[in-house]
Computed example of a mutant assay.
Amino acid sequence: MRRLKIIEHVSLDGVVQHSVDGDDFPYPNWNVPFRTPEGRDAVLAMHGERFDLLLGRRTYDLWARFWPTVPANPMADRLNAATKFVATHRPETLHWGPAEPLGPDVAEGVRRVKADDGPDLVLCGSSTLTSTLLEQGLADEVVLIVYPVVLGTGKRFVAEGTPARSLELAETQTTPSGVVLTRYQLAGPLTAA
């Protein structure tokens, strides 16, 4: 059975949005000033040598316009080679491949993909899908790449109303620019003390 890892680049106040994405988000590419070679290597290690992607439709479309045009490098090569499992109502338009639609019931589609043989799954950037996966208990691990910035506006890591969950710290690293990478294992529903 495949494991599912959520990896998100996030501000201290929980914002994961990086692009204008059709609204008035005032801070596109806010994480760029904090990028370092050490951070790149740490993010690559968190993804793993080989993985498939689980993406929402907006993230798929944004990445499909960008990653195939990037010169060869370890991250671009891994993302372009990965099978992309996409939450979409327009499967006929999945041109950045290999790609497969999850089907009309996203949670059931993810369960099916997790049950198949193959590399682990990585979800990045799809904030709506993140909440669904946590609510359904489908995520196995969460990696937060936390930047030393407060944005005050934008899409958050999880949606309001996402059920409470308990996580166990598995690993933490810090880059020279102050970015903290923290890996957690999902431990189940939060129990009140």
Rank of each mutant, 00 (worst) to 15 (best):
Q136Y: 00
S11H: 03
N73S: 12
E100M: 14
R156M: 03
R50T: 12
Q185N: 15
V146C: 07
D116V: 05
K5R: 11
G161Y: 00
A164S: 12
W67D: 07
R2E: 03
H18F: 07
W63V: 12
S19T: 15
C124D: 01
M46I: 09
Q185G: 12
V43N: 06
G39W: 01
P68N: 14
I145Y: 02
T132S: 05
E108L: 13
L12D: 00
G118C: 04
D116I: 02
N29Q: 00
P68R: 14
A115E: 14
V142I: 10
V86N: 06
E38R: 12
F157M: 03
E141A: 11
Y60S: 01
G178A: 13
N31D: 11
L121S: 01
D24N: 15
V32N: 02
S131V: 01
A107G: 13
P91R: 06
H89F: 02
V86E: 07
L151M: 13
A76M: 13
E160L: 09
Q173G: 08
L181I: 09
H47R: 10
T153M: 07
H89I: 01
T175V: 10
P37N: 14
A115I: 09
R57F: 10
R58M: 04
T69F: 04
L62F: 15
L54G: 03
A45T: 15
Y147E: 04
D61C: 04
E141S: 13
K114T: 02
G22K: 05
S19G: 15
G188I: 14
G97W: 08
L62S: 12
D105T: 13
R2P: 05
L144V: 14
P176K: 07
G14A: 12
P91N: 09
G14F: 13
V86S: 10
G137F: 03
P104W: 03
E171I: 10
P68W: 15
G161C: 01
P68M: 14
P119Y: 03
G125T: 03
W30T: 01
F85A: 11
P26K: 06
F85E: 08
A72L: 07
R3H: 07
W96G: 02
A192N: 11
I7W: 00
H47C: 02
R58Y: 01
H47Y: 07
R58P: 03
Q185H: 15
Y147Q: 05
E92L: 09
P33V: 08
A64Q: 05
D23Y: 14
T153F: 03
Q185E: 14
P71E: 14
V110E: 15
A87Y: 02
T172D: 06
R2T: 00
L123C: 08
L102T: 02
Y184E: 02
L44S: 03
P101N: 06
P176Q: 08
A99K: 01
P37W: 12
S19H: 12
P26V: 05
G178S: 13
Q173T: 09
A193Y: 09
R2Y: 00
D116M: 15
A187S: 13
T162H: 07
K114D: 05
T162S: 04
Y184F: 08
V10H: 04
E108P: 11
P26G: 09
E141W: 11
T153A: 09
T88P: 02
G97T: 12
V146E: 08
W63T: 10
E171V: 10
A87C: 11
G154T: 00
A187D: 14
F157A: 02
H95Y: 03
S166G: 13
A99S: 06
K114S: 04
T182H: 06
P26R: 04
